[in-house]
Amino acid sequence: MGEILVDAGLIKPETLRQALQNQRGTGKRLGQVLEEMDVILEEDIAAALGRQFGVRLVKGISRFNYPPAILKLVSPEEALARFIFPLKVEKKTLYLAMANPLDLDTAQEVGFRNGLQVVPCVTTPEEIKSAINRHLLAVEKKHQVKDRWWTVLIVDDQEMVQLMIEVTLKKQGYEILKANNGAEGLRLALQEKPHLILTDTLMPRMDGVEMFRNIKANRQIAHIPVIALSAKATPEEEARLLDYGYFDFMAKPINPVRLVARIKRALTQCYGDTPPQSTK
């Protein structure tokens, strides 16, 4: 992706090197990092990819209506993880909005699973996120479990990570609380007293480690199990966080199946087989 932007003359090689250095260990998209550096907008990246590879650029995709049969071609979890959204099917051809139209593996997998040929269309991650929120998540809400027992607090400054976890856990019937940093997470933990907390370790204002330290120092909420999420997927980082006292550790990007399994294990070990009533 970076080399394409350099070849297109949108950024300089030294800018790319700095962006890659800034991106390391954050879990952020390259386009997001470049935008934060005030170098280029993700709309410009999408347009450049479209010109470079002859892929159609699509905009405002959340404003349109989509038949349920189209929306069922891609699950919310897959859409969030891969930044894709199904647009329409014509003559056994699926037009698929993609933040990265060069991701041929995803296009082939979606096409093979649905028995369709896939034509990629490029758009921005924000466009896809907006479409997922309005359409795919709206469909999911109709099928959510009404009697929720568990309350889980998600603390992460990356909105897409929050959404992916939220969609995955709501399918299991969990009540979800969300915070964008450790300060907000600590406040919600004290107010709502969730049964479990998932937290990123690196965040602005108050990071996950400082929040965890404050939680364990407060007798009202010290019992709540906390699972650490980190883009530093090394054995040393896992050992450090577990030694610090976190109940468990999960490396980013988060695998939905592993996420559900780890959360069920934590809740069972901490509360037993019978779920308590929600603390809300």
Score class of each variant (00 low, 15 high):
Tyr174Ala: 15
Gly54Cys: 10
Ile176Ala: 07
Gly54Met: 07
Thr15Ala: 10
Val226Ile: 04
Lys59Pro: 00
Glu35Asn: 06
Leu177Pro: 15
Met206Ala: 09
Glu140Asn: 09
Leu41Phe: 13
Ile84Glu: 11
Thr26Met: 08
Phe112Lys: 04
Trp150Asn: 01
His143Val: 07
Thr279Val: 06
Trp149Cys: 04
Lys280Glu: 05
Ala251Trp: 06
Pro76Ala: 04
Ser278Glu: 11
Val119Pro: 00
Ala138Thr: 10
Met164Glu: 13
Met211Leu: 04
Ala131Asn: 01
Val89His: 15
Met206Arg: 10
Thr274Lys: 10
Phe85Gln: 10
Glu166Tyr: 02
Pro101Ala: 08
Leu229Met: 13
His135Ala: 01
Ser230Trp: 06
Asp44Val: 02
Ser230Cys: 05
Val122Ala: 00
Phe112Gln: 02
Arg187Gln: 14
Ile221Gln: 09
Ile227Ala: 03
Phe83Ala: 14
Asn133Tyr: 02
Gly2Val: 05
Thr234Ala: 08
Ala217Val: 03
Tyr174Met: 09
Asn133Asp: 02
Val39Cys: 13
Ile11Tyr: 13
Arg187Glu: 14
Arg262Glu: 08
Gln117Gly: 03
Pro101Trp: 00
Ala239Asn: 06
Arg56Ile: 07
Met164Asn: 13
Asp103Gln: 04
Gly185Val: 06
Met211Thr: 03
Ile70Ser: 04
Ala239Gln: 12
Pro125Tyr: 00
Glu237Lys: 06
Arg213Leu: 03
Thr15Ser: 10
Ile176Gly: 07
Thr106Val: 14
Val58Met: 10
Lys146Asp: 09
Val118Lys: 01
Glu14His: 14
Ala261Pro: 09
Leu16Ser: 01
